[in-house]
Structures are given as C-alpha cells and as structure tokens.
Design a protein around this nucleic acid. Structure first.
Length: 319
RNA sequence: GGAGGAGUAGCGAAGAGGCUAAACGCGGCGGACUGUAAAUCCGCUCCUUCGGGUUCAUAGGUUCGAAUCCUAUCUCCUCCA
C-alpha cells in the first residue's frame, strides 16, 4: 500500500501544560503553521475561558481554525476533520509544516486515522426518534435494540451510555452496515504525535492558578456577554468555564462555588485527556514544565522524523 | 462550674446487636471512546504474599456475636453560669 505522503505534527496534552507555546516555538523553528485542534477554540467570542491564543501572542505564526464558528452553532468532529484537511492543504501549498495543536483527542484522531465517522450527517429526525424511544422504553431496551443489530458494538458500549448507543443505532440505520464494521480507509497523513505532560500535582496546581487568572481576566463578563445571544443549552455552552457560570447568572449559586467547580471539572478533564492521549494515540511524551530545556529535544525529534524517507510511523491502533 | 449533643474510612455523611470492611456523596486513581468529545459512560479506592489481617475517638465490660448496649477517659459543639 502507498504510504501517506503528507506529514503533520500534533501537539497534544492536558489543559494548561503549555501546548500553545510549544506550537508557536515549533512553528518558528520548523517553518510551520499552527492549526487549532481544540473543540471549543473554534468558537468566536469564547476567548478567555478556552485559553485561546490571541493575535498579539502569535509571534507572526499563522493560526488556523480559530474563531470559525458562532457559538450558537453546533459543531462536530466531521466538520472539524474537513476543515482541518483544508487547512493542511493550505499550509502544505506554502510548503510549510502543519502543526496541529489542541486537546481534543477525538478530533485529532479523526484526522490522524482518517475515520469515516459513520458516513454522512445524521438527519435530526432519526436521532429524535431514538431519543423518544429511549424516553419511552428506557436505556436497557434501547441497548437491546443495538444488541440485536450489532452484538459486537453492543458489547463495547455500556447500556447506560445512551448517547453512544443512539449514535450506533443511527449509523446502522443510515448506512445499513454495522457500527462495529465501518470501512477503514487508509490514513491521509503521516503523523508525529508529541505529548506534553507533567507531574499530576503540578498540573492540577497550574489549572487552579489558570482558572483564577481567567476570572481576573474577565471570564465572568465574557460569559455574561455570551449568554446575551447564546442559549444556555447550546453546545458551545457545554464548555468548561462557561457552563459552570450559568447557575451563577441565574442566581442559583454563588460565584466562588462556580469557580471551584470550573477548577474541578478542568482537573477531571485533564485526566481524561491524558488517558486518551496515552491509550488512543502513539504519543511521544515530554515534560517541558519540569524540563523546559527539552524543547530543543522536541525540535530534534521532529527534524529527524521529517528526514526519514517515507517510513511512516505506522502505529495505528488496532481496533 | 452546671445541662445537653457529638466523635464512623482522605473529607462529608448513613448505619442504632448478626444480612457491615461498613450505604451514599465528594475527592483521588484507572479505563472506554468512529458526526454532541471541554461531551457521554464504566471500574477501583482500610491493609494484604489474596490464605487472611486490622477498623467505626481511647480503654475496659456485657453478649455466642458490638460501629451499634454498659462504664470510665479524652476531644469538640450548643446552652446555662
């Protein structure tokens, strides 16, 4: 089989480890451009809470896929994948290195593995019908439906995880194919994954400090402004740092409690991110918090990898 | 000084003689992940060489059997002085 020719670098890691900084550094060192790989930084008007890098911090490095959607609009992996592929083409046409920087493992993996994602977009009606069925018959009944159509998928998805059960059911209905038997296209890219991490206690402390900094920078006002045009149940409002403030604005909770919740959710999130990058991606780990000088080692690693003649990392996870 | 109340695993909190190594929540840890992914969901969390061993403030006691009953001690809270 042909090796995927286009090479891309990904910088992943939990929130608050310094991905954005490394992205810029690498871009400078390697003639690269940054492509956002963060599910919520794509939204406009959500800057402070998403720790979005601002133009004056970009040091002249082009950044793609930031501020491309209004927060009232839902967004999906598939949209991200398409947009990212476009951005990669753009960067490649300038003979620059595409550097994906972000914390949304699933988005990044859809790109890296060229996931078909169940084919086409699900019509709302199908999903609504299943959701109604769920409300009427319960989670176990719903899961049984899946078990009848696709025992393999049913075994892999917890009955309580109704969101994924419904999605599996959708895909089966829409494609006439089992959810567990989706086509497996060749990857489009040859990907090097660099992961940033640090000692857990330090990471959590950084998160706490960062949330306080966000509040000091005006997160409260940002969310208040957002809520003027975005309904609290919009997808964008599921973002950590935003959803927790809604009860405060509704007079249901005091600010300090909400801020504590933001920190807690951020910590939990960081842990989930680490799990994902650890187990779902072939990540090369670095601790630049404890060892900033290893930045150079990262550059060297990328250099060497770029020099290898189309060898390909070929470490797709078996599923 | 007097009168009440309380002390349970990292924290909060149930349990009021055997079904209790002790519900539940939080925190912590691990995991899953193919169009909501900063989402959604699952598991573990006294020690253990997995045979067992030590727990419910502490020390005694009652009982076949105690976190649960009795006695003393210590600590904390509330009220009266």
């Amino acid at each position: 089989m042909d090796k995927p020719a286009k090479r891309i670098v990904m910088i992943v890691g939990p929130t608050a480890v310094g991905k954005s900084d490394l992205g810029i550094y690498l871009a400078q060192q390697l003639q690269g451009e940054v492509i956002n790989g963060d599910a919520y930084q794509i939204y406009r008007h959500m800057n402070i809470g998403t720790a979005k890098i601002m133009p004056d911090e970009m040091a002249g490095v082009p950044h793609h896929l930031l501020d491309i959607v209004e927060p009232t609009m839902p967004y999906t992996v598939a949209k991200f994948k398409a947009a990212a592929e476009n951005a990669i083409t753009t960067v490649n046409n300038r003979h620059h290195l595409p550097i994906l920087v972000g914390g949304t493992g699933f988005y990044l993996n859809s790109l890296r593995l060229n996931l078909p994602l169940g084919g086409k977009a699900p019509p709302k009606s199908v999903r609504q019908r299943w959701q109604k069925a769920l409300a009427e018959h319960g989670a176990l009944w719903l899961w049984t439906q899946l078990a009848q159509r696709d025992p393999v998928a049913a075994k892999q998805i917890e009955p309580a995880n109704t969101r994924r059960v419904i999605r599996a059911l959708e895909v089966i209905e829409l494609t006439g194919r089992r959810f567990s038997k989706q086509p497996q296209p060749q990857p489009l890219y040859d990907t090097l994954v660099i992961g940033l991490t640090t000692q857990r206690a330090i990471l959590y402390e950084r998160i706490n400090v960062r949330v306080d900094a966000m509040m000091a920078a005006g997160l409260e006002e940002e969310v208040a402004n957002l809520l003027k045009k975005v309904p609290p149940d919009a997808q964008a409002m599921q973002a950590i740092g935003y959803k927790e403030l809604v009860p405060y604005f509704e007079g249901q909770a005091n600010l300090a409690d909400c801020v504590a919740l933001i920190k807690q959710h951020s910590r939990h999130f960081a842990k989930r991110q680490l799990t994902y990058f650890r187990n779902q991606m072939p990540t090369h780990w670095f601790d630049l918090v404890a060892h900033p000088e290893e930045k150079q080692a990262v550059v060297t690693l990328v250099h060497q990898w770029l020099k290898q003649p189309d060898k390909g990392e070929k470490d797709e996870l078996d599923r």
